[in-house]
Design a protein around this nucleic acid. Structure first.
Lengths: 134, 134
DNA sequence: CTCGTTGCAAATCATTTGCAATAGC
DNA sequence: GCTATTGCAAATGATTTGCAACGAG
């Protein structure tokens, strides 16, 4: 029976993801964690990401082929991907009403759902509006 | 100015995707296309998939890290991923009402949306029900 | 014929793994 | 001190690209 040890790198990686506003790419996790641990290796990041995922403390979000990670336990939410600046935001309102157990037309028993919205984030939308009027 | 030629491999690959009931993995496209063109190379499949995507004749669907391709122009639809058998189905009803241009809470201007449902497909759900009663 | 396309093999990119050194407990 | 963990480098798997032979117009 292997015991999971607490290490400086695991603490730092977990903190980086926990304190992030939205989901982070692996490279972003590495860069931010290296602010505290300059010698941190990429393999350790991947191993820790996998470990934290198995512990359900974080989970992956795959968006346009990019794998991002975010902290779990923040309640039901979805993502908004800005088609202009590329940033990913977390949305706290849900546009669908599909509780687990709902039977969808065709006989599909829904256990979970995922929604991603694409468009312009508030900042990019206001810049586009200014460009039009200016 | 480069001209795009019509070739046997492109026709076969386009037909395989067009005739499929749901999205196909690259390996499935290769396997099915090889029924007609046994010497077809994997690189040609990737190149053709990219070409057809640029022409908006097909588009990728990334599901659990797997890249699948399906024909475009079949109208607005979403996907259902069976957590038991792993197959992906196309749903023709949409659980969200977010026309392009909708401004989502927070000031996000929605241009498009993607929904994926997870759960048991009709076949797996009925098998599960039989197992419980039998 | 000319030049876009193909199949193959080598290259690339993201992610995983082997291994000796290192560090929790 | 025992053994999980780390960093590095090599390995893997998916996708891409270089290149000479091939084939569409």
């Amino acid at each position: 029976m292997t015991v999971t040890r607490s290490t400086r790198q695991r603490d730092v990686i977990a903190r980086v993801i926990t304190q992030a506003a939205g989901p982070l790419a692996v490279s972003e996790v590495l860069a931010q964690a290296r602010a505290d641990l300059p010698t941190l290796g990429l393999a350790t990041v991947y191993r820790t990401l996998k470990l934290l995922t198995e512990q359900h403390r974080i989970h992956p979000v795959i968006l346009d082929g990019e794998t991002l990670y975010e902290a779990s336990g923040r309640g039901h939410h979805h993502h908004f991907s800005c088609t202009v600046c590329g940033r990913v935001f977390t949305l706290h309102t849900c546009p669908v009403a599909l509780p687990s157990g709902t039977v969808y037309p065709g006989g599909f028993v829904v256990e979970a759902h995922e929604v991603t919205l694409y468009g312009q984030c508030p900042q990019c939308a206001s810049q586009a509006a200014q460009a039009l009027s200016g």
